[in-house]
Design a protein around this nucleic acid. Structure first.
Lengths: 334, 334
DNA sequence: ATGAAAGCGCTAACAC
DNA sequence: GTGTTAGCGCTTTCAT
């Protein structure tokens, strides 16, 4: 293995000079820097991560806690994961992937063994049970999702409350008065998943505000369940003309089942989706949608946590404003 | 931070004794072990990962290279990822998540900086371009997928060739003579993705062997594309009575579109799915399917690579035999 | 069955 | 602008 001593010898400088060339923490003459960088390249030197972590107490690794759930939309989770990894790499950090099934002990282990500098947490609940552990860790943490009381933890997420309101207002503005929300699985609501509850409240609030008739329908993640769910919508609200689908897995089924029942979109029923933008584009008619900005959320989470590591950062709750992209799945009520 | 010296002092032994209690690399008296373990628990000691890596040149971290593709089925990728993480944790290892977009340089970086002990690679191509780098790394590597020539690298995957044959034989045994394969996206075939090609060959081979009429249809990942793809199947093979769907994203669409066109499953058309087992269960009638054993593949990949790290392991190619689970979506031809 | 001590490769004072 | 040096916390000889 190539060490910093090898590089130093090769470039005719001391090891500390090599270290400083790499870190930029003190000024180096142009000539020295050139020689050192040449040696680094020629020898194919990469600093030993463990040695660096030991000496500097910085690992340049972020831990990301991923849910193992199958009731939330897996592709959306995956987008968060990839955007976190991509953003981390852009800032010269790597990502250690943890699952939730180790429990709080896993978080303690990661923090105490100094295997990562900070922790990012997904699948946040309204009454988030991991908050006490995270606060006790003395390492920065950022939640992807917003609990009811984040205390002094930083959070970032789409403003799902506002997103729901945006969907309802769009439908109301088009003249719809009887609207439905096809939401995530009942199990997602039951465990108090933050984004689901916030969306639901936003929906109910806007429905009331605009004086609409509105129903909400949790929908388990299977084709059969989605079909049954739509049946229930049409039974309980036979005159429904606006449906908000906040459930990626159910989206395709809802649309094809509406079609099968002879309800044309958007002539008879307007549909607003809450999903990744490219998913909304995958239909014959691109859907009217509030896109979930996974890339931006992941990037911001990484940047927030790095800023905290750098020292200059107060905890903050960052709610991204929803954007409604009009597509061909909504139209004025006939 | 709690160090090994703190534990040693607390237990009244030397640091090396604590180390040996932890590693089990030499025998310790019952009494000493008890005292040391008590101190470890009481102080909440966790070995410093960097120090350990520096001293032992073992990190207990596995790197997993994940594709960023959107044309392969994301939930399936995610299942591999979670099964690798879970299996790794069961063997006291963590997982560092890499994406492909750093290229070979990323693999070199990870290996040279000793941030991980071994590398697992997903999304393998038939003519896998990363093989030379991986071989040059002097670290164990395991491919999840099987290239045409793995050289001395270990691989593990479902035997997709046999899986396709299994599907065709099942349909042929039921009397079907006109069969179709709805496969992954054209882009997946174009870049020579290993599993797609192996499945396609298996399908073609079995169709020929059984003297059937058979067509193959790559299907891009959108609802609209899936609908168009089914149209093409029914146009080119109007008498088709058996369809193999090797494309999770298209599965729901294919079934609902068949229904919409008045072709009953399984009375008019038999459908065999190749997908995670619980996905096949999510339909009104559980589908006949060859399940993709993601959990097993991930677990085996981890175990193979750990065995290589331990020293006792020859490279091996492990193809898991497909299992066909009969469900309600296939029936004898009328 | 246990201890003492020599590094592992790097960073960051401290010197000049 | 650069070199010297003292650790960082652990594992693993070598001793006993």
């Amino acid at each position: 293995m190539v060490t910093i001593a090898d590089v130093a010898r090769d470039a005719g400088v001391s090891a500390s000079t090599v270290s400083y060339v790499l870190s930029g923490k003190r000024s180096i003459s142009a000539e020295t820097r050139r020689r050192v960088e040449a040696s680094i390249r020629r020898l194919g030197y990469h600093p030993h991560a463990g040695a660096r972590a030991l000496a500097s107490s910085r690992t340049n690794v972020l831990a990301l806690v991923m849910p193992l759930r199958t009731d939330i939309d897996v592709p959306v989770v995956m987008r968060f994961v990839t955007s976190v990894v991509t953003a981390a790499r852009e800032h010269d950090h790597d990502v250690l992937l943890l699952t939730n099934d180790e429990g709080p002990q896993g978080l303690r282990r990661v923090a105490a063994s100094a295997i990562a500098d900070a922790i990012l947490v997904m699948d946040v609940e309204a009454d988030e049970p991991r908050i006490p552990v995270l606060r006790s860790l003395l390492r920065p943490a950022v939640l992807i999702g917003v609990p009811d009381d984040p205390e002094d933890l930083s959070c970032v997420d789409l403003d799902f409350h506002a997103a729901a309101a945006r969907c309802v207002h769009h439908l109301a503005d088009l003249g719809h008065t009887d609207v439905a929300l096809v939401g995530p699985s009942p199990t997602v609501y039951e465990r108090g998943t933050s984004f689901a509850g916030r969306f639901l409240h936003g929906f109910d609030g806007a429905v009331r505000e605009r004086g609409l008739r509105g129903g909400t329908y949790p929908c388990p993640p299977s084709h059969e369940a989605a079909r049954a769910c739509l049946d229930e919508v049409l039974t309980r609200q036979p005159d429904v003309t606006g449906i908000v689908v906040h459930n990626e897995a159910a989206l395709g089924t809802v649309l094809s089942e509406l079609d099968r029942r002879g309800r044309k979109v958007p002539e008879d029923v307007s549909v607003v989706a809450v999903c990744p933008e490219d998913m909304a584009d995958g239909f014959a008619v691109p859907l009217t949608a509030v896109p979930i900005p996974s890339d931006e959320v992941g990037r911001i989470a990484v940047e927030m946590v790095l800023r905290q590591l750098q020292g200059d950062a107060a905890p903050e709750v960052r709610l991204l404003s929803p954007r409604l992209r009009e597509g061909g799945s909504t139209a004025p009520r006939r």
